[in-house]
C-alpha cells in the first residue's frame, strides 16, 4: 500500500467490495456446515464462486486501476477460470454422489433411468 494520495472514495469502494465478497464466501462455507444432506451442500460453494469471487476481484481491479501499480488483467483471467471450472466440478461431483447413493440405495434419491446403470447396480458391491 503505497502513497498517501489514494482517494477516499476509491478506498471506501475497495473496502465495501472486499468485505462483501468475503462475507458471501463465508455465507457459503457456513452453509456447508449448516446444511443436512450432500445435495443441499452442493449449492453452498456457488455463493463464493459466483458473486463472492466477482466482488473481491472487482475490489482488486479498482485498487490497481486507481494506484496504477499495474494493469488489472489477472483478475479477468481468474474470473474466467473460476466461472468456467466451478460448474464442471460440481456437476461431476453430483453425478458421482448420485451413483454412490444409488448403489447403496440411500434415502430418497431418484432412481436411475439408464438400464445399463441398473444392471450394474445389481452386480456391484458397496463402495467404501
Amino acid at each position: 500500500m503505497t502513497g498517501d494520495q489514494f482517494p477516499l472514495w476509491a478506498a471506501i469502494a475497495v473496502s465495501v467490495l472486499l468485505v462483501a465478497g468475503s462475507l458471501l464466501m463465508l455465507a457459503g462455507c457456513i452453509g456447508m456446515v449448516r446444511f443436512r444432506s450432500f445435495y443441499q451442500r452442493i449449492h453452498a460453494p456457488t455463493l463464493g464462486t459466483s458473486f463472492g469471487t466477482i466482488f473481491i476481484l472487482a475490489g482488486s481491479v479498482v485498487y490497481f486501476t486507481v494506484t496504477q501499480l499495474r494493469p488489472a488483467v489477472h483478475e479477468v483471467l481468474i474470473f474466467v477460470f473460476v466461472s468456467v471450472t466451478t460448474p464442471v466440478t460440481l456437476m461431476l461431483l453430483a453425478r458421482a454422489a448420485l451413483y454412490r447413493d444409488r448403489i447403496e440405495r440411500v434415502q430418497d434419491v431418484p432412481a436411475s433411468k439408464d438400464p445399463l446403470d441398473n444392471a450394474e447396480m445389481q452386480t456391484s458391491k458397496k463402495p467404501s
Partner: peptide, 21 residues
C-alpha cells in the same frame, strides 16, 4: 447446465438423452 449449476439455488445433476429430461 453451466448456468443452472452456477446459480446458487439450483444444481444440474443428470441428463437423460432418451427421455430428454
Amino acid at each position: 447446465s453451466c448456468i443452472v449449476t452456477a446459480t446458487p439455488g439450483s444444481a444440474w445433476l443428470e441428463y437423460h438423452p432418451e427421455e430428454s429430461e
